[in-house]
Amino acid sequence: MVGNPRRPLRVLIAKPGLDGHDRGAKVIVRALRDAGFEVIYTGIRQTPDMIAATALQEDVDAVGLSLLSGAHMTLFPQIVEGLRRRGLGSVLVFGGGIIPDEDVPRLQAAGVDRVFGPGTPLRSIAEYLKEKLASKTVAR
């Protein structure tokens, strides 16, 4: 069959850890859906392993992590590691939530490409993903 020249990008939005504040995650889900992404949402209270396994099964292009509890320095790197262990090192990882500026460089060093703080315009997240993942929309 003829190859699909432009497939929709798939993004997993996940909430690791124990905080139940999922409004931010849901706003992102909605914004990305409206920007043409296929968005999978894990729901709250996910372990790093659950998130990495879900990313594998859903074969997503990017994983967005939302966390407001302060455990990002522990959980985000574990998720990146879980993805790499599953051969998903090329999956783009980005994050958001309540994350102090001074933590961002260390998260980036650990493999989180970008951290979006509160007040980020929704459009800029969609544009960031489209730019970063541009090469992936053409046949796999």
Binding site: R30, Y41, T42
Partner: peptide, 16 residues
Amino acid sequence: SGGAFLGDRLRIQDHA
């Protein structure tokens, strides 16, 4: 938009 919210999985995540 051509986008989608795939939300079924949320209720099956116990088996992730």
